[in-house]
Design a binder for these strands. Structure first.
Lengths: 110, 110
DNA sequence: ACCATAGGTGACTAATTAGTCACCTGTCAA
DNA sequence: TTGACAGGTGACTAATTAGTCACCTATGGT
């Protein structure tokens, strides 16, 4: 068995597109959808949606299962957790950065 | 005072580049660095680094403060939290999706 | 006052990526 | 076994983006 390491770059690149994020939103609402199902909610050809799903699948953000002539799509949140853990220190409180951000916001009073 | 809503798209686009993620890593290690400081850790001209920092700043992932002729850069983790919260259900346990992912991994025994 | 230093801008090139289309494969039901 | 349906591929175009360069502004030390 090959232990495949999750590629950071694929995950972030996959999340960079609004259509793909919307697809994740749809799958977050309800899992196990087919391409046809997902396609119907978008202003795009089937091919575009299929390409986006492929990108999500290669990033492990979506996991699929075949069932006859249908392909069912499931959301996998594991990579999302990894993003979170990369820059959010479990032991350090949210004290500093957020305060700075607010300060910045208050500073620019357009 | 204008309450500016954080733009999702800017955040995800900003995170899509490996150089920018590395910059966030550097700032995660130690905050309050100057452009010169950050530049020295990268194989890229000053202009490239500056452009990346600008993208991070516009996405609110980095917050800056001027000090004389220097510009200090701080990490802001708030947008990262928002990504997490978007697709990770606080009340639902990690049970299902992760299991599917593992199953998929075991299934493809190349 | 001078010069070195830190940061900034607009224009340009090369590379990447979104979206579409013509065409193909596999599955199910009458 | 035929036709409708679900999914898939490779090639192409248009748009976006990374990285560099010439040139500019502001600050601080001596």
């Amino acid at each position: 068995m090959v232990l495949r390491v999750m590629d950071d770059d694929l995950v972030f690149k996959a999340l960079a597109d609004p259509t793909r994020r919307f697809l994740l939103d749809l799958l977050f609402q309800r899992d196990g959808r087919t391409l046809k199902d997902l396609e119907s909610g978008l202003e795009m050809t089937r091919f575009g949606v299929m390409k986006h799903l492929k990108v999500l699948e290669e990033a492990s953000l979506v996991v699929t299962r075949r069932s006859g002539r249908e392909k069912l799509h499931y959301l996998n949140a594991v990579p999302i957790r990894m993003i979170h853990d990369r820059w959010i220190d479990k032991y350090t409180e949210p004290r500093f950065s957020a305060v700075l951000a607010l300060k910045d916001e208050l500073g620019s009073k357009e």
